Lab assay of single mutants.
Amino acid sequence: KELVLVLYDYQEKSPREVTVKKGDILTLLNSTNKDWWKVEVDDRQGFIPAAYLKKL
């Protein structure tokens, strides 16, 4: 499984997104879309802008 580091706080703006904090380490589920990556946060799955994440 691939992990990503959150570079900036992000507040979800729709039900398909998730809220994260800078410094969080998340499981990356899908990065095929270059703009929005799907991650897992506390048993929730959702999207975050790829620019907010860095692969570890």
Rank of each mutant, 00 (worst) to 15 (best):
L53A: 10
D24N: 08
S14C: 09
K55C: 09
P49L: 05
W36M: 07
E2R: 12
R16F: 14
T27K: 13
E40N: 06
W37R: 01
L7P: 00
G46C: 08
D24S: 13
V6M: 02
K34R: 13
K21Y: 15
L5N: 02
L3W: 14
E12G: 14
S14N: 12
I48F: 02
K34A: 14
I25G: 00
T19Q: 04
K1P: 14
L28Q: 00
K21R: 14
I25A: 02
P49F: 04
S31W: 11
W36T: 03
N33V: 05
E17M: 05
Y52R: 04
Y10A: 01
K55E: 05
G46L: 09
R44H: 08
D9P: 07
K1C: 13
K34S: 12
D24A: 13
D42S: 13
V20H: 02
N30G: 07
L3C: 10
Y52A: 10
L56H: 05
N33S: 09
G23T: 01
Y52M: 08
L53W: 01
I25L: 07
T19K: 04
L5H: 04
W36H: 04
T19P: 02
K54F: 13
K55H: 08
D43L: 10
T27I: 15
Y10P: 01
P49C: 05
Y10E: 00
L29P: 00
V6H: 00
W36Q: 03
E17Q: 11
V20D: 00
D24V: 08
T32M: 12
R44M: 07
V18G: 02
D24F: 08
I25C: 06
T19W: 04
L7Y: 02
K22R: 11
L53S: 04
K21L: 08
K21S: 10
I48W: 01
E2V: 14
S14V: 05
K38N: 06
I25W: 04
K22N: 05
V41C: 10
N33F: 09
Y8W: 13
K55S: 06
K55W: 07
S14K: 08
E2Q: 12
L29M: 07
L7M: 08
K38R: 10
D35R: 15
D35N: 14
A51Y: 14
T32V: 11
E40K: 11
R44E: 05
Y10N: 01
K13N: 10
T27P: 15
I48M: 14
K13S: 11
V18T: 04
I25K: 05
K13H: 09
V41K: 15
L26W: 06
T27W: 15
A51N: 13
W37E: 00
K38Q: 14
V6L: 02
K54M: 15
V18C: 08
R44Q: 07
K55G: 04
V20K: 00
T32L: 10
K1G: 10
K55N: 06
V20W: 05
Y8C: 12
N33H: 12
T27F: 12
V41M: 09
A50S: 12
L26H: 10
T27Q: 12
P49I: 03
I48D: 01
S14E: 09
D43G: 15
K55T: 07
K1F: 14
E12S: 15
L7V: 07
V39Q: 00
S31K: 07
P15H: 10
T27D: 06
A51E: 09
N33P: 05
K13C: 10
Y10C: 02
V4R: 01
P15N: 11
W37K: 01
I25D: 00
K13I: 07
T27N: 09
V41N: 11
W36N: 03
T19Y: 04
V18W: 07
V39A: 02
A51T: 14
K54Y: 13
K55F: 07
K54T: 10
A50G: 05
V18S: 02
P15S: 13
L29A: 04
L53Q: 01
N30P: 04
E17Y: 05
L7H: 02
D9C: 05
S31C: 11
T19D: 03
G23W: 06
D9S: 10
E12Q: 14
I48N: 01
W37Y: 05
E2D: 11
W37L: 02
E40R: 11
P49Y: 03
S31P: 05
W37N: 01
W36C: 08
I25M: 06
L29R: 04
K21M: 09
N33T: 06
L29H: 05
V4Y: 06
P49S: 03
Y10K: 01
L26K: 01
L56D: 02
E12P: 10
K34T: 12
L29G: 01
E17V: 04
E12F: 12
L3Q: 11
I48C: 13
K55R: 15
F47M: 08
K13E: 08
A51V: 14
S31M: 08
Q45H: 10
